[in-house]
Design a protein around this nucleic acid. Structure first.
Lengths: 157, 157
DNA sequence: GTTTTCAGTGGTCAAACTGTCCAGTGCAAG
DNA sequence: CTTGCACTGGACAGTTTGACCACTGAAAAC
């Protein structure tokens, strides 16, 4: 969907100060309240904004260790492996990627020692041929979307 | 921080229906409004809930292609590479991982062809020795936190 | 075994926000 | 020129919010 400049400013504003309401947003953007309401409805119905769920920090929850695991899957076992991984709470994200039946998943654990348990749980499943894990040390750029939104909205001033 | 069962139920409720307010949440959870207010303040001040920013779908914004790139960094160039990648809007996330100066980043692009441009932009920087990219085909488990929250809150009924 | 501390309750209050209307305006496409 | 559409500025009742308060019960400290 095409995002114009006002949409961009609205999303950036919401990202920076999520607690503000429609009325306050309209004041900040210098437009009528109805306009902001209409834009938000449109952005949500078009799926640009999926929702406003709480961003939970796994570290604060007691899972300070993050890792990425690349898994090689036995041919034809994809669906089973997906279901298995979906059942492991420490698997925060799972992608299938280019390569011979490869998957990439993001894991969290309570400690480096606990990570071993999580990995055992993840790979302890018939259908996973091989796994290689990389532990995250730093996160210089946390998941972000604002720069992309700004770029996307610059095309439609 | 320790999360008890009520905290867990609150986070899950907020994740499922982010638009509800404090009052409605208190009704759903069967507790007083002040309790919900206090719990939310506590969860936010302890960093468990980082915020309620809008979840933007890059695909709906015109960036339907996601990829993960592993970068090998020349010794001592870490900071420069970080700054460079932070300046690229298509870099949604950057981690430093175990390995000899390795980094892992999540990229998006407008198309497979556009991905080439993004990768050129990413690796076209003095200090990046080598890069290997994996294109995401499917995303069977989108970034999620609910199962982990439930697990963390089960320990403290 | 008391006393203190603290989270939770249920209630009030004014202020603010929301959803939902409406008529009027300006611009762009047909 | 006319139609369609987004935006404006205003209105309205109903709801929610933030901020209080006194009271209760249970756990922690003494």
């Amino acid at each position: 969907m095409a995002i114009d400049h006002l949409d961009g400013r609205l999303i950036v504003l919401l990202a920076r100060e999520p607690r503000i309401g429609v009325l306050e947003a309209s004041r900040r953007l210098g437009v009528a309240r109805g306009t902001v309401q209409a834009r938000m409805d449109r952005l949500q119905s078009h799926g640009v904004i999926r929702g406003f769920g709480p961003e939970v920090d796994p570290a604060a929850l007691g899972y300070p260790v993050t890792a990425f695991a690349t898994l090689e899957i036995k041919q034809g076992q994809g669906a089973d492996v997906r279901a298995h991984l979906a059942g492991v709470a420490e698997v925060l994200e799972l992608h299938t990627i280019t390569g011979h039946g490869d998957m990439l998943c993001r894991l969290v654990a309570r400690s480096n020692a606990d990570l071993q348990r999580v990995i055992d749980r993840v790979v302890g499943f018939e259908g996973i041929v091989r796994a290689s894990t990389a532990i995250v040390m730093e996160n210089p750029v946390p998941l972000r979307i604002i720069p992309l939104v700004e770029q996307a909205s610059e095309d439609h001033p």
